[in-house]
Amino acid sequence: MDEPDLIELSRQGDRQAFAALVERFWDPLFRWIHHLARDQHQAEDVVQEAFLKAFSGLPSFRENTHFRAWLFRIAFNTFLKQRRPASKVVAAFPEDWPGSEPDPAEHAMNRETLRHLARAVGRLPRDFRAAFLLRVEEELSYKEVAHVLGITEETARWRVFKARQKLVEVMKDHLPESES
């Protein structure tokens, strides 16, 4: 079923339709919040609460609004409200994570480089990281990024710009000298 249909049915209180939306959006939302919180339990708390709030708030959801951006905004506000001290422990890079062997894909990094990238992203200021990941991984427009984070479009552009600049700088020693 298409997303707009699921949203409309959910607005009318259809729980199964909303379950399908949870199925569809849990993973990207959890992944984004986890990148911000760097704590699995907190991220799950936030995402769960965000979906419940979304279910309650759906009757007021306006048609033609970008559902993903609306949902991510709810989650971001929830995250800000229940923010706990950021974990200083850098999570161990999972041993079984794909990338232990060089990937045949053109741009794929090996495991070691991926580890450096994970660390570099984790060290970005949270506001930059949030905007950057929404733009690059969620492929939201700058307008949508701004909506999710409650900032202006210009600020969203600036944050993504700074995140890219920092990542390229930090990663330059870990990426082989090859031109595209």
Binding site: E23, E44, V47, A108, V168
Partner: peptide, 28 residues
Amino acid sequence: SRLERIEANIPRLPCPAATRKNELISFF
């Protein structure tokens, strides 16, 4: 080139499996 590679690999960054997703789906 670096920027392209960085952005192409962002979706490959590790993230733990969520444990409560199915719980919430079952709830609904």
